[in-house]
Design a protein around this nucleic acid. Structure first.
Lengths: 270, 270
DNA sequence: TTTTAGCTTTTCAGAATATGAGATTCGCGT
DNA sequence: ACGCGAATCTCATATTCTGAAAAGCTAAAA
């Protein structure tokens, strides 16, 4: 694990280890026994044991019937408190629901954090293929519509910073893999008013997103609509974009922000 | 196995302190500065500072523009991973949504953890007074419909254990404040097949709940419908209960469980 | 039944680790 | 510019965590 923290000088071994334990349990989709935890993290059994006991006391982990460990519900509590402080999520939900019923595709709400986007909400239409995205998960900016939507309207220096911290990992044959190409794409995004991820993250998945601007007209989040490419066709994009714009306008108003100005209307062909 | 209270003998000071910091930030509805954190927890400035820096590196806390600290989005990630392992939430959502549209009142999904119930989902009808409950929050069993619903169908020894660990705190003049009274109430609950919280937690709020049973017919969760007493009247309870039973039956089937047997039908007066 | 193997739990003396007093720097309001 | 409260940093010390080793479990094999 490469740590790119600017001032990584402060250290508390116990915390690093504890979070390593939580990470391990979070990655694993099946509960793990003490021995597994200890060997995976190269901790001695007794050390791992002590940590797990303490974490259990705090309900950060819990034991299944057979004595194995998994993440505890206290984390769920913390997580909800954390997200509550943003309160964007709650306010946005009704608008997202409307958006989903209008488009019949999955909607996401995401924030930019550090140099990655975090999905903070996902609404799926009644019957649809389950999206693989997990709420709370973070993704790189270069291959997501929400990432591009936010970046496109961020001040130049912030963009620089994010790009510098991005490894342009390739996910599909269409993934944008250079800062230069992404910059061109961002310019296109600004011109048309919405961002597109055309199977750049996952084969067969097309997404479209617009940013949510705050009172200072800075993007604080983005809303996207995603669906299989055969349903979310290029022809439909402008129409979907209009729904998106209406959605974020609603959210902005609700939050007391100024709605997006220019590019607020997009030509719908035919 | 029977005594679930793990001796608090294991200790890692650093972890206790770190979680105290997270708790503090989680309780506070406004971001806190280093000095506030240090003095609230009686930590020395440099200690608090070091912890906050490490927590920030792990994105467990983050700094607002003016240098104050609040919970970080990493917790949101962890929280979603934690809840995902239960996968009850995801599966239950469509059924809850249906329930909400049928009853036009707020629905909750809750789990029993240790001796308290944790709300893991909440769905509100389109326009309604915002409920104060927060997803992720935990409440005592004695004053909630979900708590009573679960307890009523739990084996005697587990009930004992929960009751022993419950302080019967009073919230309203109707709150049940003794184990004996609660036991009577549980018996009533079993007989009628659904649990009721009649303004026992909050003045003017009436809730009704039924348990979700697993393959072994053990309650793993409960679903409730809550609303202002003037809308959720005593007359309507049986009808709502029927919607609830249909809802949990759907959830149970979806999870591969056996639907509730007896008490599956409730007489709807006229 | 007894034995074994693999896991978890406990103990404790030693030493690496976190601690906190204090010095320094930052930043804001006057 | 100045002062004051707050944040950041340093470092010698002892408190706290560490991990070897051994004792308990539990369940499956002999």
């Amino acid at each position: 694990m490469r740590d790119a923290s600017p001032q990584g000088t402060y250290k508390v071994q116990a915390l690093d280890r504890a979070f390593a334990v939580l990470d391990l349990l979070g990655e694993s989709d099946t509960p793990l026994g003490l021995a597994q935890v200890a060997s995976s993290l190269q901790l001695h059994k007794s050390t791992a044991h002590r940590f797990l006991m303490v974490l259990e006391r705090h309900r950060m982990v819990e034991r299944t019937g057979n004595g194995k460990f998994r993440l505890g519900l206290r984390l769920f509590d913390y997580g909800n408190r954390a997200i509550e402080q943003y309160d964007l999520r709650e306010r946005a939900q009704p608008y997202l629901r409307r958006l989903v019923s209008e488009t019949e595709e999955t909607a996401h709400l995401a924030l930019l954090e550090a140099a990655r986007v975090i999905y903070i909400d996902k609404i799926e239409p009644a019957r649809s293929v389950r999206m693989i995205t997990r709420i709370g998960a973070s993704h790189p900016v270069h291959c997501t519509s929400v990432g591009k939507a936010i970046l496109a309207f961020l001040p130049e220096d912030r963009v620089e910073d994010v790009l510098r911290r991005t490894r342009f990992e390739r996910f599909t044959h269409r993934t944008i893999t250079t800062p230069e190409a992404l910059r061109v794409e961002l310019e296109k995004t600004r011109r048309r008013g919405y961002a597109v991820d055309d199977e750049e993250f996952e084969e067969g998945l097309r997404c479209i997103a617009v940013p949510v601007l705050d009172a200072q007209r800075q993007p604080v989040a983005a809303v996207s609509v995603s669906g299989p490419s055969f349903r979310v066709t290029a022809q439909k994009l402008p129409a979907i974009a209009n729904h998106l714009l209406q959605c974020v306008r609603g959210i902005s108003m609700d939050m007391g922000y100024i709605p997006m100005g220019r590019a607020a209307r997009i030509a719908v062909p035919a």
